[in-house]
């Protein structure tokens, strides 16, 4: 009976340690800004998923850590005589509880953020603007609706739902703008699509995450297969796009 009382005391103590860790780690998570700045609606969906997974993951991680810390100090054998611990082989209630809790957690994250996030990302198949993107070793070529081919800067209008139709002429590449969070591979012989709705103005010179970065290993120039991204007002975008057609001979002023 004494031993049982001891187990209960251990359980309470490790539970308190666990709670403490959860509170501290969750507080740290909410107090710090780990995620980079969002420049698109899609970034918000993906960051919400990231946040939810972290909030749910912290208690799981804390449980393991609490058990390890408590065990290391409380159950350390003081003599080296190799005395045995209590012969607890299993405990049906513990195993069943464990299975129920882990299954419930897996199901919960599958539903939200899993399926919910997926549905949000796919909610709107419409696009106000379609840009064709071609990856080639080692640069990106973007074709705008007016036929302008652009290689040195990807300029996008804010608050516009944009679909990128992506392909490759040689090996695999991957279309990724960290500020937008979205990514899709460029595959030879295949057109893949990704939707982005920019919500913030900005340029690569101000934020490194406004860059179109190749994310699939494609050979020597992979690391530097980068195209700066600039998000501008819609009106500015229209005039910029028009300029690209006329600007083929001398370098245009408006490209800064």
């Amino acid at each position: 009976m004494n031993e049982r009382g001891g187990y209960k005391q251990d359980a309470i103590r490790v539970g308190l340690l666990w709670l403490g860790l959860v509170v501290v780690l969750e507080a740290v998570w909410f107090a710090t800004e780990i995620l980079p700045r969002q420049y698109a609606e899609e970034a918000k969906i993906i960051d919400d998923a990231f946040n939810l997974l972290t909030i749910l993951g912290i208690p799981v991680f804390s449980f393991v850590v609490a058990m390890l810390i408590y065990s290391a100090f409380r159950f350390r054998s003081r003599n080296d005589a190799s005395e045995d611990g209590p012969p607890i082989k299993t405990s049906k209630p513990v195993v069943v509880t464990w299975l129920v809790v882990t299954s419930a957690l897996a199901l919960a994250i599958l539903i939200n953020p899993g399926l919910v996030g997926l549905a949000e990302l796919r909610a709107n198949p419409e696009a106000d603007l379609v840009l064709e993107v071609e990856g080639q070793r080692w640069q990106w070529v973007v074709t705008y609706p007016n036929g302008a081919e652009v290689r040195d800067e990807l300029v996008l209008p804010v608050d516009t739902r944009i679909r990128f139709d992506v392909t490759s002429v040689d090996v695999l590449h991957s279309f990724w703008v960290p500020g937008f969070r979205t990514k899709i591979d460029a595959v030879p012989g295949l057109v893949t699509s990704v939707y982005v709705t920019p919500t913030e103005l900005g340029t690569f010179t101000d934020d490194v995450n406004l860059r179109l970065q190749c994310a699939e290993l494609c050979g020597i120039g992979h690391a530097r297969m980068v195209m700066p991204v600039r998000v501008v007002e819609k009106a500015e975008f229209e005039s910029w796009m028009a300029e690209q057609l006329t600007a083929e001979a001398p370098a245009a002023e408006g490209r800064g």
């Binding site: 159950f75 611990g85 513990v94």
Partner: peptide, 30 residues
């Protein structure tokens, strides 16, 4: 594939159960 991948956390969790449950109340040899 998301569902199946997340489901694998359940059998993996049993390995953690075995490890943590064995440490619990043990006579840990340092």
């Amino acid at each position: 594939f998301m569902a199946l991948t997340e489901a694998i956390s359940i059998p993996t969790g049993l390995v953690f159960l075995g490890a943590l449950g064995t440490l619990w109340q043990g006579k840990l040899q340092s």
